[in-house]
């Protein structure tokens, strides 16, 4: 059941999805809404880093609700990926809109980050090192 919370106010960002409980799911899906710029990146970085909990194998970030993302925002995504790699986890991004795709292309970061067109595709590929697990497609309610 997806909640239809109002869009975040201008220049703000909202993160939906809960990290799984300890020993719970190996996958987490976070959905981002709003605008990512140097004003919103500190809070975003904190959210994303907090999602990299022990036991996690795959973090999927759904970007389809992001209406603007600048280089400061891309830096947070790259930083999250590096941190995930060090922890033996995988980061996949889903569905950036045209504005964000343009920035990813111009910077060449589209080749550094793993980007899937849809959430279904990102989850269908299964965790990188292990076999294909059935994966929950929505975040757990608290």
């Amino acid at each position: 059941m997806t909640t239809t919370a109002p869009a975040p106010r201008h220049g703000q960002i909202r993160v939906e999805g809960e990290p799984p409980p300890p020993g719970g799911s190996a996958n987490t899906v976070l959905r981002l809404y709003g605008e990512i710029d140097s004003a919103t990146t500190p809070a975003l970085r904190e959210h994303l880093f907090a999602a990299l909990r022990p036991g996690l194998r795959l973090l999927v970030i759904d970007l389809s609700g992001i209406t603007f993302c600048d280089v400061a925002g891309l830096a947070v995504l790259v930083g999250t990926r590096h941190r995930a790699e060090r922890l033996g986890m995988e980061l996949r991004l889903v569905g950036p809109r045209p504005q964000m795709r343009g920035t990813l292309r111009v910077t060449g970061l589209e080749r550094v980050l793993t980007i899937h067109p849809t959430l279904a595709r990102a989850l269908a590929d299964g965790p990188g090192e292990t076999g294909c697990h059935p994966t929950p497609t929505h975040p757990r309610p608290r």
Partner: peptide, 27 residues
């Protein structure tokens, strides 16, 4: 920053910029 991006898009819309060009100006 978000206020300035909005002002940029509003002013660009006064010219015949395409939506893509307006996005380029905002970024």
């Amino acid at each position: 920053l978000s206020v300035l991006r909005t002002a940029t898009a509003g002013l660009a819309a006064r010219l015949d910029f395409t939506l893509d060009e307006i996005e380029d100006l905002r970024i």
